[in-house]
């Protein structure tokens, strides 16, 4: 019943939210810039955009998972595992083409994601529990394949490290890849039947069955896609920081989920927009980059991030409740 009572305002609210988010980002940037002019310097800006690129790649994948009412806590570990395997390969074969390294990372990620997809769709384990278990397994494997050692900058070929610093068509490669993925996602979720089926499944799983949507296939798809993106992000991450460690990206899944929630993705499924998620990622990127510049201790970041997520979650809920109540008030009896 409550779902039916959402008013038209909610659609408008979605737009308002994006503008609000954009406004907040601008405001935040201005404040940071006033306090520390180094913020908008080209060097810092590039760094900011590069970091945000990786975050937004992951957040787009997570958006699809959340839309199907799922969650994936294993992506930090998937990222580490695929980054590590790619780095180890590069260490062993310094002549390896960087594209091949990226491919290796993606394949590892896809396998990890497919395992999770199988557990969720075929075995029927709750996504949170399945991904929690796999998070540990993948993290453990990262330590295992690396023999608990780091792969450091000097062990990587220049061409590999170059992935993060080179540019394509004048745009940094990381950013270029993120833009490509953004465009692909925008097309995929808005203009393909499969993309819309993801939303339909999350919006009403029971009706989806009647409409002949193969839910197992969709679950497999979103988790595998998430895995593949994590694998890609893993390679980019290792290339950017020029080091692969056992604890790479530990806890990063939470930041990714935070970006989605800030971007207006509903944890109850069915709702989420590519542009919103992108803005959510940018906001977190600005915070991540800007707070140290205005002398906020890096140890405060986690707390601030936690508070922001909680506030975003509560804000969504309260607004929805108010709208429903207003709807009831408007009903005349």
């Amino acid at each position: 019943m409550s779902e039916m009572m959402k008013s038209i305002n909610l659609a408008k609210l979605g737009k308002f939210r994006e503008f609000g988010l954009l406004g907040f980002i601008v405001l935040l940037s201005i404040v940071i810039q006033l306090l520390n002019p180094a913020f908008l310097s080209p060097g810092n800006l590039t760094d900011l955009i590069k970091n945000t690129a990786i975050l937004s790649i992951l957040a787009l994948g997570m958006m699809l998972v959340l839309i199907t009412r799922g969650i994936d806590l294993s992506i930090g570990a998937t990222l580490a595992l695929s980054g590590m395997i790619a780095a180890l390969t590069v260490r062993a074969y310094p002549d390896l083409h960087p594209l091949l390294a990226i491919l290796i990372g993606i394949v590892v990620g896809v396998v990890c994601g497919a395992v999770l997809g199988l557990l969720v769709s075929k075995v029927g384990i709750l996504p949170i529990i399945a991904s929690l278990g796999l998070m540990n397994a993948f993290r453990g494997m990262t330590y295992w394949v690396s023999g608990r050692e780091w792969v450091s900058a000097y062990q990587m070929s220049d061409s590999f490290k170059h992935i993060a610093t080179s540019s394509i068509l004048g745009i940094n490669t990381l950013v270029f890849i993120a833009i490509i993925i953004f465009i692909f996602f925008n097309y995929f979720v808005n203009n393909t039947v499969t993309g819309r089926q993801i939303y339909a499944l999350g919006s009403n799983p029971d009706s989806a069955k009647i409409s002949g949507i193969n839910s197992d296939r969709i679950y497999m798809l979103v988790y595998t896609l998430m895995g593949g993106l994590s694998g890609l992000a893993g390679v980019l991450w290792v290339s950017k920081f020029a080091s692969a460690q056992g604890n790479t990206g530990s806890g990063y899944e939470l930041t990714v989920i935070a970006a989605c929630i800030l971007g207006g993705v509903s944890i109850n499924g069915g709702v989420g927009k590519v542009t919103g998620v992108l803005l959510g990622a940018v906001l977190l990127g600005v915070l991540d980059n800007g707070l140290p510049l205005i002398n906020v201790s890096p140890f405060w970041q986690m707390g601030i991030e936690g508070a922001i997520i909680l506030i975003a979650v509560l804000f969504n809920t309260i607004v929805k409740k108010t709208v429903e109540r207003n709807n009831l008030l408007r009903r005349v009896i």
């Binding site: 709750l126 540990n136 993948f138 453990g140 494997m141 330590y143 295992w144």
Partner: peptide
């Protein structure tokens, strides 16, 4: 090694839930 225990616990969790 301790880190390998992670794998065991993770897999154990999934197996027991299944």
């Amino acid at each position: 090694p301790a880190q390998m225990l992670l794998i065991v616990i993770g897999i154990l969790l999934i197996v027991s839930v299944t």
